[in-house]
Simulated assay, not measured.
Amino acid sequence: MSTDYQRAREDLGRRLRELRVESPDGRLTGVQLAQRLGWQQSKISKLENGRQTPTDADLRAWADATGQPAVFAELRGRLKGFESQIRSWRRQLSAGHRPVQETWNTLIRASRTLHMWENSTVCGMLQTADYARCVFEHYAELQRSPRDTEDAVRVRLQRQEWLYEPGKQLELLMWEGVLWAQVCPPSVLAAQLDRLLGVVGLDTVRLGIVPLDNGLRLPPANAFCVLDERLVIVEDWHAELWLDDAETIALYRRVWDTFAESAVFGTEAQQVIARVRRSLKV
């Protein structure tokens, strides 16, 4: 967790403690507030000490229980301010995968150029429906989120219309390990690799593959996307990081350029994909 994020969470915790202590009904102990809210006292402690991130509902309940409902807007503003950079999957997936995909579609539609690095799964911009379905099912199980797989697949595939719009450009690098990853049945993976072979010559796509036996100047690390040099989105197990400061964006572009030095493109990329495709027993 970033230092800035944790500091902001601790600041919010101190504000919550102030509201409890300065309640118009008189100073409340943590135990008394927990009883009013029907929570465990440990939750009160975690929130006040910056060891747990509150939800909007938590903040509204806290403001009401301390007799200061008008302060909810301030608390919510604080929360949104520091969550703008770290967007936990727990929160984002509380209503399923479809809302997350709709947010991505909005971002992509507003972008002209995408620089993407993928080291674990095929980029969503090029996924087949069956491959996307497998990925969503895996993550829904991991995150214990609502299952809205078919809606999520449909919205993700809508995003791919962007690839056929004039003036758009997808600069995509993938580690060869992505092509081998059995995140779906072999028949689904075979169709996905066929899809990749078919987009190599697309005008709006430049697909580079970093072969497993090519030297790397950096570890593969996390997948990320740079949108028009204005925003970087990095994926981790617990959250997406949305980073918009110029220095960080420039850093990720240097990372992308470094991986590109190890990549093969065009016919050579097709040969790598085809070699993996032939190895599948389907």
Rank of each mutant, 00 (worst) to 15 (best):
99 P>L: 03
132 A>R: 01
80 K>S: 15
95 A>S: 15
106 T>K: 09
75 L>Q: 10
106 T>Q: 13
61 A>L: 12
70 A>L: 06
101 Q>D: 00
103 T>H: 12
97 H>P: 00
88 S>E: 13
60 R>G: 10
121 T>S: 10
55 T>F: 06
78 R>H: 13
122 V>N: 05
83 E>C: 11
117 W>F: 09
75 L>W: 08
82 F>I: 01
81 G>A: 12
97 H>V: 00
76 R>C: 09
137 E>V: 01
92 Q>I: 07
63 A>K: 03
102 E>G: 00
121 T>H: 09
136 F>Q: 00
108 I>G: 13
141 E>P: 00
114 L>Q: 11
89 W>Y: 14
83 E>P: 09
59 L>A: 08
70 A>R: 08
130 D>W: 04
142 L>H: 08
100 V>S: 08
141 E>K: 12
108 I>S: 10
130 D>Y: 01
65 A>E: 11
130 D>S: 11
55 T>A: 10
89 W>L: 07
88 S>D: 09
78 R>T: 11
139 Y>I: 04
125 M>K: 01
69 P>A: 06
57 A>F: 01
106 T>Y: 01
100 V>R: 02
77 G>N: 11
119 N>P: 02
70 A>S: 10
95 A>F: 05
132 A>D: 03
57 A>C: 01
54 P>R: 03
140 A>H: 07
123 C>Q: 11
130 D>P: 01
135 V>D: 01
128 T>P: 02
104 W>I: 02
76 R>S: 15
119 N>K: 00
65 A>I: 06
55 T>Y: 07
97 H>N: 03
113 T>E: 08
64 D>L: 10
142 L>M: 11
135 V>F: 03
125 M>R: 02
51 R>P: 02
88 S>I: 00
113 T>Q: 10
78 R>W: 07
100 V>A: 12
118 E>T: 02
117 W>N: 05
95 A>W: 03
61 A>M: 10
94 S>Q: 14
77 G>D: 11
139 Y>Q: 13
90 R>N: 13
96 G>Q: 08
119 N>F: 01
129 A>W: 02
124 G>W: 08
67 G>Y: 05
105 N>F: 01
92 Q>K: 11
62 W>P: 15
138 H>A: 07
120 S>I: 05
135 V>K: 02
84 S>E: 13
95 A>E: 15
78 R>F: 04
104 W>A: 03
56 D>Q: 09
98 R>W: 02
51 R>C: 06
86 I>F: 06
122 V>G: 06
86 I>G: 05
92 Q>M: 15
80 K>R: 13
122 V>C: 07
